[in-house]
Design a protein around this nucleic acid. Structure first.
Length: 479
RNA sequence: GGCGGGUUGGCGGAGAGGUUACGCACCGGAUUGCAAAUCCGUGAAGACCGGUUCGAUUCCGGUACCCGCCUCCA
């Protein structure tokens, strides 16, 4: 068992990870709002958690980890798209159109994240399937004196929760002082946030004790994590942009609803994504989705490698140069490990990952293995990091790269030996080096080439690699 | 304005209070009858100013610059 250390936003230190229950390690990642294609930034937390889950499964056992990532399918942007389709003449109801939009977006999301080699979570709950739990939790918060109804809304009373602001290091008073937006008049405190809000007739809604309406943004994660993982679980994560207000509000809701529980022990936040040194934004014209990159021919493996190369707590800059370098490295690795069985993991590999997911360090361990020709170790590490799919079949891109490498390696890279003949050839070569009579060497080499064998003359040895047209019959006489 | 994070060699990117990170690129050399997407190696850093220390890129303080968040935006 390796000691895993993670930087916990809650404690602001890198702590040794101790699960509440080692036989059931539980994680929750805030998933996407399914109104459109996932952009590249959305992929980062997915890959960080994919890596974390792989490490935890390695440590605690595949069955001892439960990973939940939600789909937020209650959102005004989805509603807006549904209303647009309705206005365009769709015969479906608004609710059906919302579901339709969510369905297609979720399918895209799955396809895109699959292409990045991210394993699906154990549970992918949709907010719309947990409305009852949200209503129940909201009512409970009112009953416990932490929320109040006003003008069809239900608001969380931040003053009722002294720890409000602790996660993000803010005080309610400071935030009010810096507030720049007009405050709804029915709020008791400017920082109070919505648990439930009324829905007009042309917007999807659910019946509730406070009238027809829909949940606020934050309550879904509190309700779904409690339903699937219990009120206390181990790791909760997401992008740094979610730290406030989303995660802060989740903590307020969950801790007040379940005062006996601890909610999430560890909070993990990944830094944001940049593109060529600048923030990714539609106005700068550098905004793109995962699908855009895939369509441009950037392989999912390469996107994954680039993403995992930068530590999750540092801003990640997506650049063409990084993609090119990643492509080169992976190309070589696939070539080295194609057809090789996975061995032990390289030295230092797990230690690096266990140290707050230092994947760059894990890559270093793989580079060392590649350099030393420990291909079985390289293969094991690649599989661990998700560069080989579970079915161990290469993507079209990777297969292509392997063939290119094989072609280029006509005279270079050591792989496997046709023992005996390589010995013989090397022996002849050593003699020829002295006698300068290369006829025997040439004879052997020509025969081998004719039999479809690649002949690689290396310093001190000869590598013989059977090619696609290898015919053992033709070299039978050479031994 | 408030809060949080960052600043490492040409580029990318880590760990560690005191020994070469590593990769890519560059340069030098080697190996080779031919051949290199082969091998070996050198150089190159820690934004700035102070402080703590025998010693700091690593700890502390300040400055500059950059990034994110600041009530329904994921």
């Amino acid at each position: 068992m390796t000691q895993i250390r993670l930087t916990n936003t809650r404690t602001r230190t890198k702590d040794v990870f101790v699960p509440l229950d080692a036989s059931n390690v539980r994680l929750y990642l805030c998933g996407p709002t399914v109104y459109d294609r996932a952009h590249l930034g959305n992929a980062r937390p997915v890959l960080v958690f994919d890596l974390l889950v792989r490490l935890l499964r390695h440590d605690y056992g595949a069955e001892a980890v439960t990973y939940v990532r939600n789909f937020t399918d209650v959102d005004d942007k989805i509603n807006a798209e549904a209303q647009r389709r309705k206005a365009a003449g769709s015969p479906l109801t608004l609710e059906e159109l919302v579901a339709e939009r969510s369905e297609e977006t979720i399918a895209w999301y799955h396809a895109d994240m699959d292409a990045l080699g991210a394993d699906r979570p154990d549970h992918e709950p949709r907010a719309t399937a947990y409305i009852a739990q949200m209503i129940e939790m909201t009512a409970d918060l009112i009953a416990k004196g932490h929320a109040y109804a006003a003008e069809g809304h239900v608001l969380f009373d931040v003053r009722s929760f002294p720890a409000y602001g602790k996660l993000s290091g803010r005080s309610v008073d400071d935030m009010i002082a810096g507030a720049r937006v007009e405050v709804a008049p029915f709020k008791r405190d400017p920082m109070d946030f919505v648990l439930w809000k009324p829905s007009e007739a042309d917007v999807p809604g659910w019946d509730s004790p406070w009238g027809r309406g829909r949940p606020g943004w934050h309550i879904e994660c509190s309700a779904m994590s409690a339903a699937l993982l219990g009120p206390s679980f181990d790791i909760h994560g997401g992008g740094l942009d979610l730290q406030f207000p989303h995660h802060e509000n989740e903590i307020a809701q969950s801790c007040c609803a379940h005062p006996e529980a601890s909610f999430a022990t560890v909070w993990l936040h990944n830094e944001m994504l940049q593109v060529e040194g600048k923030k990714m934004s539609k106005s700068l014209g550098n905004f793109f989705t995962v699908r855009d990159l895939l369509d441009q021919g950037v392989p999912g493996e390469v996107i994954r490698f680039v993403m995992l190369s930068t530590h999750y707590r540092k801003p990640m800059d997506w650049t063409e140069a990084k993609a090119a370098e990643a492509s080169q490295t992976l190309s070589k690795w696939y070539w080295l490990t194609d057809g090789v069985g996975a061995g032990d993991l390289p030295e230092g590999f797990i230690d690096a990952l266990a140290n707050d997911l230092n994947c760059s360090g894990a890559h270093t361990a793989l580079k060392a293995a590649a350099r030393a020709g420990r291909n079985a170790e390289l293969r094991a590490g690649m599989e661990f990091l998700g560069y080989w799919p579970a079915d161990r079949k290469l993507s079209a891109w990777a297969r292509d790269e392997v063939q290119k490498q094989a072609h280029f390696a006509e005279h270079s890279y050591p792989r496997l030996e046709l023992s005996g003949l390589s010995w013989k050839l090397q022996g002849a070569r050593e003699k020829a080096a002295v006698s300068k009579d290369f006829s025997e060497v040439d004879h052997l080499k020509t025969a081998l080439l004719a039999a479809g064998v690649e002949v690689r003359m290396l310093k001190g040895s000869v590598e013989l690699v059977p090619g696609p047209n290898f015919d053992p019959e033709k070299i039978a006489g050479l031994n």
